[in-house]
């Protein structure tokens, strides 16, 4: 911009005839929506933190009870943990002892392995999304189509993992108002927050499918630009972003 004073440049930016932020209407509105969604998820996660920290922490397991990854095989794991006082109504359970399952490896103590897998699935599907956006900038229809396909696969894989995780949690006896691990709010907040995030992933997959079909039938080719991929991409990355914090606050801490 070749303006010689700040006020002149402000006038030019905001006096009409141009886009002040140099983005399309749709993209700006997507950002505003994501801002509001960020507030929603912040509220949920901070609410989770408030309830969690109003309970005392679980004490670390005594030396003779320490469970090494890969070592523990038992069908009465929850009962054993209750007996030694690791699960109790009086304190928040340690995520280490709750989220320790992995598909096809029943009974092994594998904390964090499964959610790490889910995290990598979501990161990779974010990468294929951003590759689709990049291909869209070059008007490369075939590449956009292929990368969108991988993105949808990643989203479905993540949803499958989450369904498995929920099944595991529910068959262990967890519901919205009670659970064998400790305070009722532990399962309530788990279902509400991961459910809300999972529903975002589900909506993302549906929207991805719609733009995938539109790419195939040439809607964006005719329109002359692939901006729709970018806008949906913003939403998809946001879902990944939220998962980073769900992973941190539910599983790591």
């Amino acid at each position: 911009m070749t303006s010689n004073s700040a006020s002149a440049s402000t006038t030019k930016t905001w006096s009409g005839g141009r886009s002040p932020y140099n983005v399309s209407y749709g993209k700006l509105m997507m950002w505003i929506f994501l801002l509001s969604d960020a507030f929603t998820f912040s509220s949920l996660l901070i609410g989770y933190g408030a309830v969690r920290f109003s309970y005392p922490k679980a004490e670390p397991l005594a030396q003779e009870h320490v469970i090494k990854p890969m070592s523990h095989v038992s069908h009465e794991f929850i009962e054993e943990m209750k007996e030694i006082g690791a699960f109790s109504e009086a304190h928040w359970p340690s995520p280490d002892l709750v989220f320790n399952h992995f598909p096809f490896l029943h009974g092994l103590h594998l904390p964090l392995f499964f959610v790490s897998l889910m995290t990598f699935i979501l990161i990779f599907s974010s990468v294929t999304m951003v590759l689709a956006v990049e291909a869209g900038h070059r008007m490369d229809k075939t590449k956009v189509r292929n990368y969108m396909f991988y993105t949808i696969l990643g989203g479905l894989a993540f949803l499958g993992c989450q369904a498995w995780e929920w099944t595991q949690f529910i068959t262990a006896g967890c519901s919205l108002d009670s659970n064998p691990y400790g305070p009722a709010q532990f399962a309530t907040l788990f279902f509400v927050v991961t459910g809300f995030h999972g529903f975002h992933v589900f909506s993302g997959v549906v929207i991805n499918l719609i733009i995938y079909i539109n790419t195939i039938i040439g809607t964006y080719e005719k329109r002359g630009h692939y901006e729709m991929i970018e806008k949906v991409g913003l939403y998809w990355h946001f879902v990944d972003l939220v998962w980073v914090f769900v992973f941190t606050f539910f599983y790591l801490i």
Binding site: Y21, N22, V23, L35, S126, V130, F238, D240, L241
Partner: peptide, 19 residues
């Protein structure tokens, strides 16, 4: 994720601040 994947660092600073 925000700066690179969501392209925020290539947007105008006004938009980044607004969000």
């Amino acid at each position: 994720i925000v700066a690179s994947f969501m392209h925020m660092k290539h947007e105008k600073i006004d938009l980044a601040a607004c969000i």
